[in-house]
Amino acid sequence: MAPETRDRAFPLSAGILFGLGLGGFFDGIVLHQVLQWHHMLSSWYPINSVPNLELNTLWDGLFHATTYVFVVIGLFILWRSAHRRHLSWSNKLLAGTLLTGWGLFNLVEGLIDHQILGLHHVNERVSREQWILWDLGFLAWGLVMLVGGLLLVRAGRAEEASGQADRALIR
């Protein structure tokens, strides 16, 4: 890719970081706080005492702080790229990288926190036998977002390449 083309290319890492952050915010806000299905360490420290609630709340906050950092870094990368000159990016690249990041979040968080470490499960309010079903659904949702995101990124790159070829013909 020529230097000028590379400077104008959509920053995939920014979209992926935004997706990671948004996936974490959704998990923390909707599943931890609104639905209260689980907390960060609720399988290890069930919410059956004030000290356990305090510990889980602290770790939920650290989790939110990490997802916030992903969004801030993504915003910084996007700003540095967009601030350079007028750009023509495909909307598919933004949507695709957001889905890719969110899907990656679900897969990594689901595999590590739910399955490997057993820190918590997606829905701990249902019977224990059903936890795995919710966990598998979370992983499947992540996989669908990841694949859909990657397909959109591919389409967006093709769209950008086609647009750049069109602009070169106009010059």
Score class of each variant (00 low, 15 high):
26 F>S: 03
86 H>N: 10
19 G>C: 07
47 I>P: 00
25 F>K: 09
69 V>G: 04
66 T>M: 14
165 A>V: 07
156 G>T: 02
48 N>G: 13
136 L>T: 07
156 G>Y: 02
52 N>Q: 14
47 I>D: 14
15 G>N: 07
28 G>W: 11
122 V>T: 12
60 D>I: 08
74 G>H: 02
117 L>D: 04
23 G>K: 07
143 L>K: 02
59 W>G: 02
153 V>M: 06
163 G>A: 15
7 D>P: 00
71 V>H: 10
164 Q>T: 08
155 A>I: 00
42 S>P: 05
93 L>R: 06
65 A>V: 13
76 F>M: 08
16 I>A: 08
73 I>D: 04
35 L>V: 05
87 L>S: 11
13 S>G: 05
137 G>F: 10
139 L>M: 10
25 F>I: 12
102 W>N: 05
132 I>H: 09
36 Q>A: 13
1 M>K: 11
39 H>E: 03
169 L>V: 13
116 I>H: 08
48 N>D: 15
11 P>A: 02
23 G>Y: 06
141 W>G: 03
33 Q>A: 10
101 G>N: 01
161 A>C: 07
34 V>C: 01
116 I>M: 12
21 G>D: 13
132 I>D: 12
25 F>G: 02
134 W>F: 13
35 L>K: 13
66 T>N: 07
125 R>H: 09
97 T>M: 04
91 N>E: 03
64 H>Y: 11
146 L>A: 05
17 L>M: 14
95 A>Y: 00
169 L>P: 01
55 L>Y: 14
34 V>W: 13
102 W>Q: 11
79 W>S: 06
110 G>K: 05
112 I>F: 06
157 R>G: 09
64 H>I: 10
32 H>S: 12
150 L>D: 02
115 Q>T: 08
56 N>K: 11
129 E>M: 08
69 V>A: 14
31 L>V: 15
21 G>R: 11
26 F>N: 03
100 T>S: 01
37 W>H: 11
133 L>F: 13
132 I>V: 15
65 A>E: 09
48 N>A: 14
45 Y>C: 05
149 G>I: 06
138 F>H: 10
94 L>M: 13
2 A>L: 12
38 H>A: 03
130 Q>Y: 09
89 W>A: 09
81 S>V: 02
18 F>K: 05
124 E>K: 11
59 W>S: 04
127 S>V: 15
105 F>R: 04
51 P>H: 14
96 G>R: 00
73 I>L: 12
84 R>A: 15
5 T>R: 15
58 L>K: 10
